[in-house]
Protein backbone atom coordinates (compact mmCIF):
# COMPACT_ATOMS: atom_id res chain seq x y z
CA UNK A 1 0.00 0.00 0.00
CA UNK A 2 1.32 3.43 -0.90
CA UNK A 3 1.14 5.53 2.23
CA UNK A 4 2.53 8.69 0.65
CA UNK A 5 4.42 11.29 2.67
CA UNK A 6 1.55 11.93 5.05
CA UNK A 7 1.08 8.20 5.65
CA UNK A 8 4.69 7.63 6.67
CA UNK A 9 4.54 10.63 8.95
CA UNK A 10 1.43 9.28 10.63
CA UNK A 11 3.14 5.90 10.99
CA UNK A 12 6.09 7.57 12.72
CA UNK A 13 3.77 9.31 15.18
CA UNK A 14 1.84 6.11 15.93
CA UNK A 15 5.02 4.07 16.45
CA UNK A 16 6.45 6.70 18.76
CA UNK A 17 3.26 6.74 20.81
CA UNK A 18 3.15 2.94 21.03
CA UNK A 19 6.76 2.80 22.19
CA UNK A 20 5.86 5.04 25.12
CA UNK A 21 3.16 2.74 26.51
CA UNK A 22 0.79 4.16 29.11
CA UNK A 23 2.21 7.22 30.83
CA UNK A 24 -0.93 8.50 32.55
CA UNK A 25 -1.06 8.44 36.32
CA UNK A 26 -3.63 6.38 38.20
CA UNK A 27 -4.01 9.24 40.66
CA UNK A 28 -6.31 9.81 42.53
CA UNK A 29 -7.15 6.07 42.65
CA UNK A 30 -3.43 5.30 42.94
CA UNK A 31 -0.51 7.15 44.46
CA UNK A 32 1.04 10.20 42.82
CA UNK A 33 4.26 9.27 41.00
CA UNK A 34 6.02 12.58 41.61
CA UNK A 35 5.70 15.84 43.44
CA UNK A 36 7.42 19.21 43.56
CA UNK A 37 8.80 18.97 47.13
CA UNK A 38 8.77 22.61 48.20
CA UNK A 39 5.40 23.24 46.54
CA UNK A 40 3.91 21.00 49.22
CA UNK A 41 3.16 22.49 52.61
CA UNK A 42 6.14 22.24 54.98
CA UNK A 43 5.90 20.43 58.30
CA UNK A 44 7.85 21.00 61.49
CA UNK A 45 10.99 18.90 61.81
CA UNK A 46 13.20 20.17 64.65
CA UNK A 47 14.62 23.20 66.40
CA UNK A 48 13.00 26.62 66.25
CA UNK A 49 9.20 26.37 65.93
CA UNK A 50 8.94 29.97 64.76
CA UNK A 51 11.70 30.46 62.16
CA UNK A 52 11.64 33.49 59.86
CA UNK A 53 8.82 33.23 57.31
CA UNK A 54 8.48 36.07 54.77
CA UNK A 55 4.73 35.52 54.41
CA UNK A 56 4.06 35.00 58.14
CA UNK A 57 2.66 31.55 57.40
CA UNK A 58 4.38 29.86 60.35
CA UNK A 59 3.22 30.04 63.95
CA UNK A 60 4.31 27.73 66.75
CA UNK A 61 5.32 24.87 64.51
CA UNK A 62 2.29 24.92 62.22
CA UNK A 63 1.82 26.40 58.76
CA UNK A 64 -1.14 28.35 57.39
CA UNK A 65 -1.64 26.53 54.08
CA UNK A 66 -2.89 29.46 52.05
CA UNK A 67 -0.03 31.75 53.02
CA UNK A 68 3.00 29.52 52.36
CA UNK A 69 4.92 30.76 49.30
CA UNK A 70 7.11 27.64 48.97
CA UNK A 71 10.34 29.60 49.49
CA UNK A 72 11.95 27.00 51.75
CA UNK A 73 13.38 29.63 54.09
CA UNK A 74 12.00 27.69 57.06
CA UNK A 75 14.43 24.84 56.31
CA UNK A 76 15.95 23.04 58.29
CA UNK A 77 13.36 23.63 61.04
CA UNK A 78 10.65 22.63 58.59
CA UNK A 79 10.72 20.24 55.65
CA UNK A 80 8.36 19.53 52.72
CA UNK A 81 5.41 17.33 53.72
CA UNK A 82 5.23 15.78 50.19
CA UNK A 83 1.48 15.67 50.85
CA UNK A 84 -0.71 16.37 47.79
CA UNK A 85 -4.00 16.30 49.72
CA UNK A 86 -3.71 19.71 51.39
CA UNK A 87 -6.38 21.55 49.40
CA UNK A 88 -9.64 22.46 51.13
CA UNK A 89 -13.10 22.70 49.65
CA UNK A 90 -15.82 24.61 51.46
CA UNK A 91 -18.54 22.91 49.46
CA UNK A 92 -19.33 19.81 47.47
CA UNK A 93 -21.13 19.87 44.12
CA UNK A 94 -21.97 16.27 43.28
CA UNK A 95 -23.62 17.27 39.98
CA UNK A 96 -20.09 17.90 38.67
CA UNK A 97 -18.99 14.38 39.53
CA UNK A 98 -18.87 13.15 35.95
CA UNK A 99 -17.89 16.33 34.16
CA UNK A 100 -16.48 19.66 35.21
CA UNK A 101 -15.65 22.52 32.84
CA UNK A 102 -13.07 24.96 34.15
CA UNK A 103 -12.35 28.52 33.08
CA UNK A 104 -8.84 29.52 34.14
CA UNK A 105 -8.37 33.22 34.79
CA UNK A 106 -5.17 35.06 35.62
CA UNK A 107 -5.85 37.91 38.01
CA UNK A 108 -2.17 38.84 38.46
CA UNK A 109 0.05 35.79 38.50
CA UNK A 110 3.74 35.19 37.79
CA UNK A 111 2.70 32.61 35.19
CA UNK A 112 3.75 29.50 37.12
CA UNK A 113 0.24 28.72 38.46
CA UNK A 114 -1.17 29.19 34.93
CA UNK A 115 1.21 26.57 33.58
CA UNK A 116 0.54 24.13 36.42
CA UNK A 117 -3.21 24.40 35.74
CA UNK A 118 -2.54 23.80 32.05
CA UNK A 119 -0.41 20.77 32.98
CA UNK A 120 -3.62 18.88 33.68
CA UNK A 121 -3.94 18.49 29.91
CA UNK A 122 -0.55 16.78 29.57
CA UNK A 123 -0.52 13.00 29.04
CA UNK A 124 0.82 12.27 32.54
CA UNK A 125 -2.29 13.78 34.17
CA UNK A 126 -4.88 13.60 31.35
CA UNK A 127 -7.66 15.49 33.11
CA UNK A 128 -10.22 14.27 30.58
CA UNK A 129 -10.10 10.74 32.04
CA UNK A 130 -11.63 12.30 35.18
CA UNK A 131 -14.06 14.45 33.20
CA UNK A 132 -11.96 17.59 33.76
CA UNK A 133 -11.90 19.90 30.75
CA UNK A 134 -11.09 23.54 30.12
CA UNK A 135 -13.42 25.93 28.41
CA UNK A 136 -12.65 29.18 26.62
CA UNK A 137 -15.54 31.11 28.08
CA UNK A 138 -16.88 31.47 31.63
CA UNK A 139 -20.43 31.15 30.25
CA UNK A 140 -19.81 27.43 29.73
CA UNK A 141 -17.82 26.96 32.92
CA UNK A 142 -18.73 25.17 36.13
CA UNK A 143 -15.71 26.53 37.95
CA UNK A 144 -13.52 29.59 37.86
CA UNK A 145 -9.90 28.72 38.58
CA UNK A 146 -8.16 31.94 39.62
CA UNK A 147 -4.40 32.34 39.75
CA UNK A 148 -2.47 35.35 41.00
CA UNK A 149 -3.04 38.26 43.31
CA UNK A 150 -6.01 40.53 42.81
CA UNK A 151 -4.91 43.42 40.61
CA UNK A 152 -7.02 46.52 40.06
CA UNK A 153 -7.02 45.96 36.30
CA UNK A 154 -8.48 42.47 36.59
CA UNK A 155 -11.09 43.22 39.26
CA UNK A 156 -13.90 43.91 36.78
CA UNK A 157 -12.93 41.04 34.47
CA UNK A 158 -13.04 38.63 37.43
CA UNK A 159 -16.44 39.81 38.60
CA UNK A 160 -17.88 39.75 35.08
CA UNK A 161 -16.54 36.24 34.50
CA UNK A 162 -18.15 35.08 37.73
CA UNK A 163 -21.46 36.82 37.01
CA UNK A 164 -21.72 35.18 33.59
CA UNK A 165 -21.49 31.65 35.03
CA UNK A 166 -24.57 29.52 35.60
CA UNK A 167 -25.35 27.73 38.88
CA UNK A 168 -24.05 25.50 40.32
CA UNK A 169 -20.66 27.15 40.17
CA UNK A 170 -17.48 27.21 42.19
CA UNK A 171 -14.45 29.44 42.61
CA UNK A 172 -10.96 28.03 43.07
CA UNK A 173 -8.20 30.19 44.54
CA UNK A 174 -5.15 28.53 43.02
CA UNK A 175 -1.83 29.22 44.68
CA UNK A 176 -0.70 31.37 47.58
CA UNK A 177 -1.18 34.67 45.70
CA UNK A 178 -4.86 34.03 44.95
CA UNK A 179 -5.57 32.60 48.40
CA UNK A 180 -3.84 35.10 50.65
CA UNK A 181 -2.07 37.61 48.42
CA UNK A 182 1.25 35.95 49.29
CA UNK A 183 3.99 38.57 49.39
CA UNK A 184 2.84 40.48 46.33
CA UNK A 185 -0.64 41.82 46.92
CA UNK A 186 -4.24 41.16 47.84
CA UNK A 187 -6.21 37.94 47.90
CA UNK A 188 -9.02 37.43 45.37
CA UNK A 189 -11.24 36.54 48.33
CA UNK A 190 -11.54 40.29 49.00
CA UNK A 191 -14.06 40.47 46.13
CA UNK A 192 -15.22 36.88 45.57
CA UNK A 193 -16.12 34.03 47.90
CA UNK A 194 -13.60 31.31 47.20
CA UNK A 195 -14.98 27.79 47.58
CA UNK A 196 -11.77 25.82 47.12
CA UNK A 197 -8.24 26.76 48.15
CA UNK A 198 -5.34 25.08 46.37
CA UNK A 199 -2.16 25.77 48.35
CA UNK A 200 1.36 25.95 46.96
CA UNK A 201 3.49 28.39 45.04
CA UNK A 202 2.62 27.16 42.51
CA UNK A 203 0.48 24.16 43.52
CA UNK A 204 1.70 20.85 42.13
CA UNK A 205 -0.64 19.46 39.40
CA UNK A 206 -1.50 16.53 41.70
CA UNK A 207 -2.68 19.03 44.34
CA UNK A 208 -4.86 20.72 41.72
CA UNK A 209 -6.44 17.39 40.70
CA UNK A 210 -7.04 16.54 44.34
CA UNK A 211 -8.77 19.89 44.89
CA UNK A 212 -11.12 19.35 41.93
CA UNK A 213 -12.03 15.90 43.24
CA UNK A 214 -12.81 17.34 46.66
CA UNK A 215 -15.22 19.88 45.16
CA UNK A 216 -16.99 17.05 43.34
CA UNK A 217 -17.23 14.90 46.46
CA UNK A 218 -15.05 12.25 44.90
CA UNK A 219 -12.57 11.96 47.76
Amino acid sequence: MDLGDGGYRMKAWILRSLRKGIVTTKFPAGKNEAVSPWSTIPVYRSGDRNPYCPSSAIKDGSVTHGSCISCGMCFPNFEPSMDVHTSQSGKVIRELGKSIKIYAIDSGSCGACNLEIMSLSSPQYDGTRLGITFTNTPRQADALMISGVLTEGMREALLRAYDSMAEPRAVFATGACAISGGILGKSVSTILNTDVIVPGCPPDPFVIIDSIQKLRGRQ
Partner: peptide, 9 residues
Amino acid sequence: PSTGGLVES
Protein backbone atom coordinates in the same frame (compact mmCIF):
# COMPACT_ATOMS: atom_id res chain seq x y z
CA PRO B 1 -7.98 40.78 28.83
CA SER B 2 -9.11 37.28 29.83
CA THR B 3 -9.76 34.63 27.24
CA GLY B 4 -9.20 30.92 26.97
CA GLY B 5 -6.89 31.49 24.01
CA LEU B 6 -4.27 33.32 26.06
CA VAL B 7 -2.08 32.00 28.87
CA GLU B 8 -1.96 35.34 30.70
CA SER B 9 -4.25 38.34 30.96
